[in-house]
Design a protein around this nucleic acid. Sequence first.
DNA 1: TACTAATATATGCTTATCCGTATATAAAGA
DNA 2: TCTTTATATACGGATAAGCATATATTAGTA
Lengths: 116, 116
Amino acid sequence: MSPEILFRALSDETRLRCVMLVLQHGELCVCKLTEALNLSQPKISRHLATLKAARVLQDRREGVWVHYRLHAQLPAWALTVLQQTLCGIQAQEPFLSDSLHLKNVPDNSSLCSITE
Amino acid sequence: MSPEILFRALSDETRLRCVMLVLQHGELCVCKLTEALNLSQPKISRHLATLKAARVLQDRREGVWVHYRLHAQLPAWALTVLQQTLCGIQAQEPFLSDSLHLKNVPDNSSLCSITE
DNA sequence: TACTAATATATGCTTATCCGTATATAAAGA
DNA sequence: TCTTTATATACGGATAAGCATATATTAGTA
């Protein structure tokens, strides 16, 4: 993991929003991110693929659902960077709205929520 | 300062190398960075301009020399991100070589060194 | 097997970004 | 004013990256 790979992965707002939500919640499936960010599914999926390729996130399939979490081998410094970033920006938009919105995603919106 | 602006600024290796050296040394002029990184002056200058536009760095002219330092209004979280990144990568290439190389830039290579 | 739901990927288009080379600009000194 | 030095910027080219839309792929169920 080189630093510019991490920073490039985080340099897109959609990707950053995904990572910040995953950082706060431990693990999230695509459908949750899609609803929380109110963006199209292909767009979310594409950005998640980029994050996965950069080894920032890793995925886990559970039936039709795919959950994403921070990569198990993310270096400590990179994790600290993410945490410090969250501390600095969680009260900013769109990150504040994202978190509130995620909390409001109804559990019956997707069956994946029951198992999370 | 939004996070993706910071991360975009850092997503290029040349720019990241510049910022890491500036972070370690407080203030550096273009000629020092150009020699330490062993890259062309226009390339360094262009990247410094990008960092300045993103308000990651600020500059100060002293005669024919221009010195760059971290921007005075860099948010605390952003500074912490930079510091943690340095902690994590300073022993990696090319950052390790950059620092060693900077130490070896002879003082008589440029008159700017005398005043620094 | 067919159908449905969730997700990943392809396509074509537009815009952004980086590069080396050349040169413009700013500053200093004769 | 002219010359030199340091730095900034312009230019043209190549490549990367993001987007919406469409559709392929995977998993589960009837």
